[in-house]
Simulated scan of single mutants.
Amino acid sequence: MNNNSKDLSVGVERAIDSLGRLVLPKEMRNALNFQDNQVVNIKLFKNYIQVEKSIINCNFCDSQEDIIYHKNFPMCRNCLNELIEKFNK
């Protein structure tokens, strides 16, 4: 993470609760297009923590588009439809 002024467009102080939770401000979530229950990667560096969207790929074709889960198994809708067609024959 660079400390350029364009990287630090919004500064907000928040308290960490007794369970270690921190609320990301809605404006920041909106700016990054975070959805409810967004899966994120959290990385610890020497002086800071980085939070970023996880990139989820289909386990069959590696696509990142239109991902759904079945028993914690990510797949795209195209592969799901192919599986449905195959097992409906």
Rank of each mutant, 00 (worst) to 15 (best):
Y48Q: 15
F73H: 07
N2H: 06
Y69G: 01
Y69W: 08
D17Y: 10
D62H: 11
N59V: 12
N47C: 08
K6A: 10
C76G: 02
P74I: 04
I68Q: 08
S54Q: 15
Y69L: 08
C76D: 03
M75E: 11
F73K: 07
N81E: 12
G11H: 13
C61A: 07
Q50L: 15
I68S: 05
A31I: 03
P25W: 06
P25V: 05
S54G: 07
L44G: 07
I67T: 04
L8Y: 12
R14D: 06
N72P: 00
Q35P: 01
N3C: 05
C58T: 04
P25A: 02
N33F: 06
Q64D: 09
N3L: 11
L83H: 05
I67S: 05
C79Q: 02
D7M: 12
G11F: 12
K26A: 06
P74N: 08
N59W: 06
I42N: 05
I16E: 07
K71Q: 10
K26I: 03
C79G: 01
M75G: 04
C58Y: 12
S5R: 13
D17L: 09
V12K: 09
F34S: 00
M28L: 11
V40W: 01
N72W: 02
C79F: 07
L24S: 01
D7Q: 12
R21P: 01
N78T: 11
Y69Q: 05
P25F: 04
H70P: 00
K53W: 08
R14Y: 06
I16K: 07
R29P: 01
D66N: 15
K43F: 14
